[in-house]
């Protein structure tokens, strides 16, 4: 097994073209998978040493978050937390305090878990991932990265270098909630992120609702967002949103939860996340 620390994106992409090569950022998924015997990579490409990969930078009023930025670093970035509290709280739910010192938002995305806590709020935020690969750089909406459990749309040799969260208009707020049977150290049984922008009159002008752990990938539910638009989260709007969420759920039955449970709880979480996001946007019910 080889451990490489490339200094340029091109070098990293070239290493990733080799057989059984894997990206190492925080390593909180990769090392666990190697230890359990699920993965036996021949080349490990540590991207932490690439320029900019550990930086959070302002860009066009938004934030570019390097693929090796840890959850803890995001949580300590005051401006980022103020602008995208839902995205940050999703990332900060991954693993334990110790894991937060290593785990990255990009890694959480590229691991491809349908239950990834870091992903639904990114989708609701309209986040865009920047990819480097043998054919150069391209930008892809985060929503298009996961394609199924453990699978992504990344091409051979490609890896994420950063994720861009756009500028926030006034009167906006987001939130992420997940359900786990205990209070921490667990994997989401269902998750819901809501991102709202309010108009000057305090009604919802734009709404995006994204779910985790209820389908093969985290996904946006446009009908749920539409149900909230134009409302101040009055009961009928919330009920319509919850119905849309539940209609979109296609979960599995497994040791962590039943289809019925996941579907029901996804609606409950979306409702609660919407109320938090609305309050964060300064909304008055």
């Amino acid at each position: 097994m080889r451990y490489a620390t490339p200094k340029t994106a091109a070098e990293a992409a070239s290493l990733l073209m080799e057989d059984a090569a894997r990206v190492l950022a925080g390593g909180t998924d990769l090392l666990v998978q190697m230890k359990s015997g699920r993965l036996a990579p021949e080349t490990i490409v540590d991207i932490k040493h690439l320029p900019g990969l550990r930086d959070i930078t302002r860009e066009d009023g938004g934030f570019r978050i390097g693929a090796a930025v840890s959850g803890a670093e995001m949580g300590e970035h005051t401006d980022l937390v103020a602008a995208w509290p839902g995205v940050v709280e999703g990332v900060n739910l991954i693993g334990s305090t110790q894991v937060q010192g290593r785990a990255t938002m990009a890694g959480n995305l590229c691991n491809g878990s349908p239950a990834a806590d870091g992903v639904p709020a990114q989708i609701a935020a309209g986040a865009v991932a920047r990819l480097e690969g043998p054919e150069g750089t391209r930008d892809v909406p985060v929503a298009e990265i996961p394609t199924g459990p453990g699978k992504t749309s990344l091409k051979r040799g490609e890896f994420v270098t950063s994720i861009f969260l756009p500028a926030r208009p006034e009167r906006s707020g987001d939130a992420y909630l997940r359900f786990i049977p205990r209070t921490e150290m667990d994997i989401a049984v269902a998750g819901a992120a809501v991102n709202l922008v309010l108009g000057a009159d305090g009604t919802v002008a734009e709404a995006r609702v994204a779910l985790g752990a209820v389908a093969p990938t985290a996904m946006e539910v446009p009908e749920a967002g539409a149900a909230l638009t134009g409302s101040k989260l009055e009961d009928p709007a919330i009920e319509a949103m919850v119905d849309a969420v539940r209609a979109a759920c296609k979960p599995i039955d497994d040791k962590r939860g039943t289809v019925e449970f996941r579907t029901h709880v996804a609606g409950v979480l979306a409702k609660r996340a919407a109320r938090i996001a609305f309050a964060r946007a300064g909304g008055q019910a």
């Binding site: 049977p181 205990r182 209070t183 921490e184 150290m185 667990d186 994997i187 962590r256």
Partner: peptide, 12 residues
């Protein structure tokens, strides 16, 4: 494993 065999953690 302790992920899905859920003993209570301190915060529970």
């Amino acid at each position: 494993g302790f992920l899905d065999y859920r003993v209570p953690v301190a915060s529970d």
